[in-house]
């Protein structure tokens, strides 16, 4: 029973997991004494109880309505589903001919519905900018450097074998996006993962030797700009009815550009979360 309550505490974040040693640097939590928070909860209780009750009511109402909706939807897995219509059949039937991609999904998101995907890449770009804006340490509040790199023999030895393999796999996924499952988003995140493992094993210094702030920005912005300009040309030509072969090649080039963007995004998240700079 006691174990269970400890488990509960751990789930609630009250207790450190016994094995975790990474959290030594956490600030003290002495202000969070139990009686303290209880007396405060009493003062807030009137409002929060009403609020909780209202929320529960809304959720109950919503779940009943949505269950009825779900039961009334067209059946799962049938061929008469309204989503299986001329549009999806056109995509499956014509994608290879019109976009040069055997992977219909890649052809669809990068060509037919490419503007959405461009927006999506901009969301990623925007997320990195926001993380940078929030966590970029300005001179005064420089974070403590927690660079474990190169200390762990096992990790660094394993990574010497592992990182090239992961990189190769990532490149494979990236370049074969138009013929098989994969593409820019998945390939880019595998490449980003490889960079992150590399940074963990050999220290941040090892990464910034070849992937400095300038190169990082260059890769990120070039990737997105190539995408934006290429896609802009494609839209301009397409919308004005000018014949071009661009739509057949756009998938490959854009896939690689997206891969670069995603890779730098992943590594950027890691880098800013851990040390607040690149």
């Amino acid at each position: 029973m006691k174990k269970l309550s400890r488990f509960n505490d751990w789930v609630d974040g009250e207790l450190d997991f016994p094995l975790s040693t990474l959290h030594d640097a956490r600030p003290e939590r002495h202000e969070r004494g139990r009686h303290h928070s209880m007396s405060d909860s009493r003062s807030l209780s009137a409002f929060s109880k009403v609020y909780a009750l209202l929320c529960l009511l809304v959720c109950l109402l919503l779940v009943c309505t949505l269950l009825a909706v779900a039961a009334a939807l067209p059946g799962f897995g049938s061929e008469e589903n309204p989503t299986v219509n001329e549009v999806s059949e056109h995509y499956v039937g014509q994608a290879e001919h019109e976009t040069g991609a055997e992977n219909v999904i890649a052809g669809m998101i990068l060509n037919y519905r490419g503007f959405d995907t461009f927006g999506e890449s901009c969301v990623l770009f925007l997320a990195v900018c926001c993380v940078m804006q929030l966590l970029w340490s300005t001179g005064a509040e420089k974070k403590q450097k927690t660079d474990f790199g190169g200390q762990d023999v096992i990790l660094s030895r394993v990574c010497r074998v592992l990182v090239p393999c992961v990189l190769c796999f990532g490149l494979c996924v990236l370049f074969s996006g138009h013929t098989s499952p994969g593409g820019g988003f998945s390939g880019g995140s595998v490449l980003g993962a490889a960079l992150i493992i590399f940074a963990l094993a050999f220290g941040d210094g090892a990464v910034s030797r070849f992937f400095s702030r300038r190169i990082y920005n260059l890769v990120r912005i070039t990737g997105l700009m190539v995408y934006a300009l290429m896609f802009g040309c494609y839209i301009f030509l397409g919308a004005n009815g000018i014949e071009s072969e661009l739509s057949r090649y756009i998938v490959l080039v854009v896939d690689i550009a997206v891969g670069l963007v995603v890779m730098s995004t992943m590594y950027g998240f890691y880098s800013f979360y851990t040390k607040g700079e690149l």
Binding site: S88, V92, M108, P181
Partner: peptide, 17 residues
């Protein structure tokens, strides 16, 4: 919806959207 040897036979693949 990743075309394999079967070619672009519409009734073989699920909706890609």
């Amino acid at each position: 919806a990743v075309l394999t040897d079967g070619g672009a036979d519409v009734s073989r693949y699920v909706n890609p959207i």
